[in-house]
């Protein structure tokens, strides 16, 4: 079977080699390999999977199996700014739902999409970030915002856009 070649700039290959080097200690552990890939690229590019599959002699399907099993792996590039909405019990009870809708609306995210068209924002949800006592909880670029309201959410978006947006 012909092997797909790694497209794109040669940089990609070099970065892959570095990941491979780092990975020698934990041979065969696909999770940590994918974690390392994601750390470098921000997501799991398809090309890299084929590249590692060839280098390590592990079927690409195994990578795909693991990557799709765990919520932490992304197969598509993500936005510059990451908004994480908590959808845990406490946050749900305290009304995180309408706030998420509002945020998605402000960023004009179509149904089923998580990243805004301009690539500035990605809105994701997780089940409980473990800060339930200050529910509803949102995380904007790793900073935790507690006791969120619709008004505070708009402020948060504006703050992030001004501070970091291109």
């Amino acid at each position: 079977m012909p092997q797909p070649v790694l497209k794109g700039e040669s940089m990609t290959d070099k970065r892959c080699e570095e990941v491979l080097e780092k990975h020698q200690k934990e041979k065969g552990n696909i999770i940590s390999l994918l974690q390392n890939i994601q750390e470098v690229f921000g997501y799991i590019p398809e090309d890299t999977v084929f590249w590692f599959s060839r280098e390590l002699n592990i079927p690409a399907s195994s990578f795909y199996g693991v990557a799709t099993f765990y919520a932490q792996f992304y197969l598509k590039p993500r936005g510059k700014n990451i908004i994480t909405a908590c959808c845990g019990t406490a946050c749900h009870v305290k009304g995180s739902g309408p706030i998420i809708n509002k945020i998605r609306e402000e960023l004009k995210l179509p149904e089923g999409e998580t990243t805004s068209k301009d690539g500035k924002f990605t809105v994701e949800s997780v089940a409980c970030v473990g800060a339930c006592s200050i529910a509803p909880v949102f995380i904007g670029n790793k900073k935790v915002f507690g006791k969120m309201t619709i008004e505070k959410a708009s402020e948060m978006l504006k703050g992030i856009d001004k501070g970091k947006g291109a």
Partner: peptide, 22 residues
């Protein structure tokens, strides 16, 4: 962990440490 509730279950957790689907 890599984000899967089921990995709290002990046998799934072990599979996950071994680098497999949990």
């Amino acid at each position: 962990g890599a984000g899967a509730f089921i990995c709290g279950e002990e046998t799934a957790l072990i599979a996950s440490i071994e680098g497999k689907r949990g």
